[in-house]
């Protein structure tokens, strides 16, 4: 396992966007994540797989410090974004989250209009100076999220009135409207039907050209379809991390193999 990681680093050092070293997460006395070392590459889709409760969502939430909102959570180790430690005392998590956007498991549009859902992020970050500029951001974000054609005539109607798949794409559009550098997705398709899932997956593949995307998924097929690199978590440990093809066809760790073939998890 150690050997493999060194090999990875040798190959990809220059493109690394986020690198985590010796990350430990505790929920109270529960040691939820142990010694996680990961390098997430720029303009790549990285999938986190593993059985429920293995810590993959916990690790994802460390990457934009969403765990700060959980009172009992404690994070140790270093996570750097472009070489800067995001857990440095000087870092404001609000600024970090503008750079590292997030899409949640359940679609959670604001109970406002579709337009206001997208415009909220740019507004609070002061990304625009005029209404027309804001209109432009809303339009391009919705286009990137492949939702524009469906909602362009009803931008004033409530975002909560859309279907589940549309809501999730609205949330993706909302996340990319703030022009982040990394997009975190926590099981974005778990509440969607296969058609909506296919649309979101297609979207993820397109987003790869602009962002580094990290996706947590329970579906190994999905991980295989959308990601270039895959990390397998088990019981709070990062078991194996590498090229998606290699993980699924030729796993080095017996636990990875057992999970992929359906024997654990």
């Amino acid at each position: 396992m150690n050997d493999m990681r060194i090999a990875e680093r040798n190959v990809d050092t220059n493109e690394s966007k986020i690198s985590a070293r010796k990350v430990q997460v505790y929920y109270g006395t529960n040691h939820a994540l142990k010694d996680v070392d990961v390098d997430i590459l720029d303009k790549t889709v990285t999938a986190f797989i593993g059985p429920s409760g293995c810590g993959k969502s916990t690790f994802l939430r460390c990457l934009n410090r969403m765990n700060d909102t959980v009172a009992s959570a404690r994070v140790e180790g270093t996570i750097t974004l472009d070489g800067e430690n995001i857990y440095d005392a000087k870092v404001d998590p609000v600024q970090l989250r503008a750079k590292v956007g997030m899409v949640f498991q359940k679609p959670n549009p604001f109970p406002k209009s579709i337009y206001d859902n997208i415009a909220y992020g740019p507004k609070i970050h002061g990304l625009t100076r005029s209404k027309s500029e804001l209109d432009g951001i809303v339009e391009t974000s919705l286009k990137k999220a492949a939702l524009w054609n469906e909602v362009k005539d009803r931008l004033d109607s409530p975002g909560t009135g859309l279907s589940g798949g549309q809501q999730q794409r609205l949330c993706i559009a909302r996340a990319i409207a703030t022009q982040p550098e990394v997009l975190l997705m926590d099981e974005p398709c778990s509440a969607l039907d296969p058609i909506a899932t296919a649309q979101v997956e297609e979207l993820i593949d397109e987003l790869r050209s602009q962002f580094s995307v990290v996706i947590v998924t329970h579906s190994m097929q999905q991980a295989a379809r959308v990601s270039q690199r895959t990390a397998f978590f088990h019981l709070g440990n990062l078991v194996e991390y590498g090229e998606t093809g290699q993980i699924f066809t030729n796993p080095k760790d017996p636990r990875t193999e057992s999970y992929i073939t359906g024997r654990i998890g």
Partner: peptide, 18 residues
């Protein structure tokens, strides 16, 4: 108020007060 709304707001980079 569902916590997902707070997550959504924090996720797009709103501060706690916002």
């Amino acid at each position: 108020v569902p916590p997902s709304i707070r997550d959504a707001a924090l996720g797009v980079g709103a501060s706690k007060v916002q």
